[in-house]
């Protein structure tokens, strides 16, 4: 386990860190950068709570070695909206009651963000298929899907 220097770009900011080479991105984002919005649900790539975006694609940070993310654009939930104004997805999740315990919420919102970047007109079926790796035990998913559909509409309106 050697120490390595690494440069990470997270939420638009550059970080230069000295890390153990075996560390996952999940560990570095949480323990070194204090980005606790990246949730640690299972550590083995099954629940989706630790989902982040790397170059706008959803990635399980618990299965990603930190060293492999060098030079890439990393977005965590903390970086989705840099102002006081919430992202339309965040607003819709609140309005539609899609947030309950909130543990899966950051990962689901980021996955939904990646979907909406890829596909501006997904059907409900496509939304469900895209989100299937993000587990939620509270909601039964209906309100999450409703929130994504609604955010989609307001994004199209340019809201």
């Amino acid at each position: 386990m050697s120490e390595k220097e690494i440069n990470l770009k997270v939420n638009g900011k550059q970080y230069s860190l000295q890390i153990s080479s075996h560390k996952t991105l999940l560990e570095i984002l949480r323990d070194n950068l204090g980005l606790y919005g990246v949730k640690n649900g299972c550590s083995i790539g099954e629940c989706g709570a630790c989902t982040i975006l790397i170059d706008n694609k959803p990635v399980l940070s618990c299965l990603t070695m930190a060293l492999s993310a060098e030079g890439k654009e990393i977005t965590t939930i903390e970086g989705l909206s840099n102002s006081d104004k919430l992202h339309p997805l965040q607003e819709a999740f609140i309005k539609y009651g899609a947030v309950e315990c909130g543990f899966c919420t950051p990962g689901i919102i980021l996955t939904a963000k990646a979907l909406l970047d890829e596909n501006q007109n997904p059907t409900e079926e496509e939304i469900r298929l895209y989100l299937k790796g993000n587990l939620c035990r509270c909601t039964g998913y209906s309100k999450i899907v409703e929130a994504v559909v609604s955010a989609l509409k307001s994004l199209r309106k340019g809201g």
Binding site: R30, L35, Y36, G37, V38, K39, N40, T76, I77, E78, L80, S81, L86, Q90, F93, I94, K95, G97, V99, G102, F103, T105, P106, I109
Partner: peptide, 21 residues
């Protein structure tokens, strides 16, 4: 009334602290 849940803003921003955090 359907008031927004307390803590929802913190949760969607990833700021809500759980014990593990």
């Amino acid at each position: 009334k359907n008031v927004a849940r307390i803590g929802a803003v913190e949760k969607v921003r990833g700021e809500a602290k759980f014990v593990g955090d």
